[in-house]
Write a protein that binds this DNA or RNA. Structure first.
Length: 553
RNA sequence: UGCUUCGUGGUGUAACUGGCAACACGUCUGACUCUGGAUCAGAAGAGUCCAGGUUCGAGCCCUGGCGAAGCAACCA
């Protein structure tokens, strides 16, 4: 149990809010959800679930300059995909604009809010600094009657944007900057995605959030650490709004940071706008939609989040942990198939040209229930270029002149010769002989050979495009470098597109989002752009490659 | 020279509120293998930011340092 759930448990035991637990997930619809939001979603929905409570979905749509319906739809889809449900409790901060306006009016009447006619620059200048107190606005002591009139006229559209704001009257000398008469309402003359042109005046986050929590009966309002300093203001406002004992409690936790990526919506949006990636759901993006398209499962994301925990200190999590989580999940649930990414032809000289067999191949050695399939085998095959070396180095256990290897699920073959392309000098064809007694399950099948290769039959293979993804950035913390823009660290090799890959024919019918392990290579997922006859696979994550490490040394 | 929060292996988290610092990832080694990459086993790696104090006993409590992050948007 993390520290937040411990707090919740203590509140339940203390009898607060009649033992009720009600949380909320409050995204601003100004971008797509990323895995950091998934961390919040798992906490908000997860802790409610754990204590038999409820979790609302509430769009924090207080700024019509930034928010759009497109984002609302994607956010809902992503939350459902992750496996959470808000039932009929889909709310919007804009649902409460009327009540918030009334509350603001009430504060004015009580002498706790005033209209300030100054520019934002002047207000900022008077705000002071964290080490120096602020100065009071010359408009601070306007009468409630005048304030009421001005506030109403602000909302009637009489004044220009930026000409006036409503401020809470708290304490310009407070050591907490957020208590120095924060702006709570500003004029925005822009159509809102839900309320249209009804309002000319919109509440700020600080004025909306806690009050919305209160209106919805939220008991625990969980948010990230940077809102810690907002809590006194949150409490100040709720205390002036509430009439009974009930009050929502804000608790903060650390946001998710991942190595080799960026996690702010602003930066992600920048990548999208500058077309440095192919949209919010580019498989290299840490967005929920990107991860989905990349081949991640909701379970793997949830397991990852479970493993990193919730604390009060900022951490940078190793992507290796995320990758481990997908491998672990996919390993158990996904069939293995043969796919040759960089094909080279292999001819078995003593295998009759007209002969054809179907080899039975186990789908998942870890799970008998996943059964087996038949894979066509013939005289001409494709294997990986990397699986043959003219001059095999030490510890290279694959094919080379005179060497024997097993073709997985088929025969042991021996390389007798190879041909070279006269123009390029590349190996163009490998000639082998096979031993009929070594067929899997056959009399000499137990013979030891150094390696096992995957293969596809040349005549039966289907072509495919395969997209290999690598980390988007080649710096562990691209956004944390003072003197460099994060975009300087973009990895130019984050996407490699392979065409003419050869796949076993069972893959011809694979549908978008279908997932497989390409034996000896990695986990792959059919891309959304894939069509019958033009199949496209995304590499989710490679298998751990010990030869790769050895060969680099 | 303000306020708030926080310092536990390389990384992320634990440690039943005082009882031999545990787990995962990563790293390394080995076994096995018809995935070199599946699978399994093992090892190395921190004495808990520092200094005092309380205590039989401190990662946990107290005092004082040091360090880090957040906070000065009419963003959320």
């Amino acid at each position: 149990m993390n520290f937040i759930e411990q707090f919740i448990l203590e509140d339940i035991r203390a009898g607060k809010n009649d033992g009720r637990v009600h949380t909320r997930f409050p995204p601003e619809p100004n971008g797509y959800l990323h895995i950091g939001h998934a961390k919040a979603i798992c906490l908000d929905f997860g802790s409610a679930e754990r204590f038999g409570g409820k979790c609302n979905l509430r769009f924090d749509d207080t700024n019509p300059l930034k928010e759009e319906t497109e984002y609302v739809d994607s956010i809902k889809e992503d939350i459902h995909w992750l496996g959470f449900d808000w039932e009929d409790r889909e709310f919007y901060a804009s649902d409460y604009f009327g009540r918030l306006f009334d509350f603001a009016t009430d504060l004015i009447k009580r002498g706790l809010a005033y209209v300030d006619d100054q520019s934002s620059e002047d207000i900022a200048a008077q705000k002071g600094t964290p080490t120096r107190p602020g100065k009071e606005s010359p408009f601070r002591n306007r009468s409630p009657i005048e304030n009421l009139d001005l506030f109403k006229r602000m909302n009637d559209g009489e004044f220009e944007e930026g000409s006036r704001v409503l401020r809470a009257k708290i304490d310009m000398a407070s050591p907490n900057m957020h208590m120095r008469d924060p702006v709570i309402y500003r004029i925005i003359k822009r159509s809102h995605h839900r309320t249209g042109n009804k309002w000319k005046v919109y509440p700020m986050y600080d004025f909306a959030h806690g009050q919305c929590d209160y209106f919805e009966g939220i008991t625990h309002s969980l948010c990230t650490l940077e809102f810690e300093v907002h809590r006194p203001l949150y409490d100040w406002l709720v205390d002036r709004l509430r009439t009974g004992d009930y009050r929502p409690r804000q608790i903060e936790f650390n946001r998710l940071n991942l190595t080799y990526t960026v996690m702010s919506k602003r930066k992600l949006q920048e990548l999208v706008i500058l077309k440095l990636v192919k949209g919010w759901d580019d498989p290299r993006m840490p967005t929920v939609s990107g991860l989905r398209r990349r081949g991640y499962t909701p379970e793997s994301i949830r397991n990852f989040i479970k493993s990193i925990g919730y604390t009060k200190f900022e951490a940078i999590n190793d992507v290796a942990l995320l990758e481990h989580a997908v491998r672990e999940d996919l390993n158990a649930r996904v069939p293995r198939v043969f796919a040759v990414l960089n094909p080279v032809k292999l001819v078995i000289s003593n295998y009759p040209a007209e002969k054809y067999e179907e080899m039975e191949i186990i789908n998942n050695p870890g799970d008998e229930n996943m059964g087996s399939r038949l894979v066509p085998f013939s005289r001409e095959l494709y294997i990986e270029k990397d699986d043959f070396k003219e001059d095999p180095p030490a510890k290279f256990f694959r094919l080379g002149p005179g060497r024997e290897v097993r073709l997985k699920g088929a025969y042991i073959i021996k390389c007798t010769d190879f041909r070279r392309d006269e123009l390029t000098g590349e190996i163009s064809e490998i000639i082998c002989t096979y031993d009929p007694d070594t067929k899997s399950g056959g009399p000499a099948a137990g013979r030891k050979v150094k390696g096992t290769l995957h293969w596809v039959s040349a005549a039966h293979a289907i072509d495919a495009e395969v997209r290999l993804y690598d980390r988007l950035f080649n710096h562990e913390d691209p956004a944390g470098q003072k003197y460099h823009d994060f975009k300087e660290f973009l990895n130019p090799e984050s996407l490699e597109i392979l065409t003419g890959c050869k796949l076993e024919p069972s893959l011809a019918e694979a549908q978008p989002l279908d997932k497989f392990q390409f034996q000896r290579i990695g986990y792959f997922c059919v891309d959304e752009d894939s069509m019958p006859g033009n199949i496209i696979f995304n590499r989710t994550v490679p298998l751990k490659d010990t030869w790769g490490k050895v060969s680099k040394k």
